[in-house]
Design a protein around this nucleic acid. Sequence first.
DNA 1: GCGACAG
DNA 2: ATCTTGTCGC
Length: 304
Amino acid sequence: MEINLYNEFYSLVKQIPKGRVTTYGDLALALGDIVASRAVGKMLSENPKPMEIPCHRVVMSDGSLGGFTHPESIIKKIEILRNEGVEIINGKIKDFAKIRFNDFKSNYPLKKLWEEEENIKKKISLNDRDFDKIVAIDVSYEGRNAFISSIVVDRNFSLLKKYVKITNVDFPYIPTYLSYREGRAIIRTIDEEALYVLDGQGILHPRGIGLATYVGILKNVPSLGIAKSRLVGEIIEGRIYLNGLQVGWKIGKYHISPGNLISLEKSIELGKDIIKSGILNMAHNLATRSRNQYSSSNNGGPFP
DNA sequence: GCGACAG
DNA sequence: ATCTTGTCGC
């Protein structure tokens, strides 16, 4: 199921009738999960058709107005809403409860993904599988373009090759749904037989299927998540627990958790070596650099 | 009111 | 992660 969340989202926004308003959170719930509320704001800010897609009808959960990306800023949002018959007093929507619209017709795409994850998850294995190479991956974005860097090393961490691939994403960043933004992009661009080290979580995830696990299962490769912060879990003496079970390790600033085809024990052993090798930083720098080069080559060039 | 919120 | 249209829970 390849969904374009931007398209699904904008079709929801179109459902808000003139003279009514909705909230960022209501739209997030219509997408299927309240955690998307911030992504709602982000997607509204990228509204491709302001006339057709009435992003001005989206306000904050307390009835205040929220933001508006427009040369005339929030003033314009107020003006348009008043023209549509919405009254605004002291920066708040009058009769907010009465004109609040949240009767969206939706197929709740994020819930569908949650169901899909339950299926994928059945194929996880935490038994170690041998590998000859390690690939560290990092992703940098510019709008909907993703710059995916790969650093490929052997078991002694000698550099074999490095490269960047560019692909586009049709899914915003939503906490706990990183797999659908970054994982799908990564899956489209990798083809090595190797252990994949990803900048995100493995099984240390609210639904037990973080980025590294998602990619590892769908590509049938061993994978490991190494992230600088975490969504869930409790750290006790360097071990990270979720629902009473250990699902990862805290080492320095890093959170390490198995993705797929790797054990907890092997995760910490390899994780330490990987961090020490510097390939995570190499991958990060390569992705960032290539995005910056791309940007500068597409702006302010020598042509009028 | 302030911090969380994988990237 | 970018470069700034949130929400919830403590």
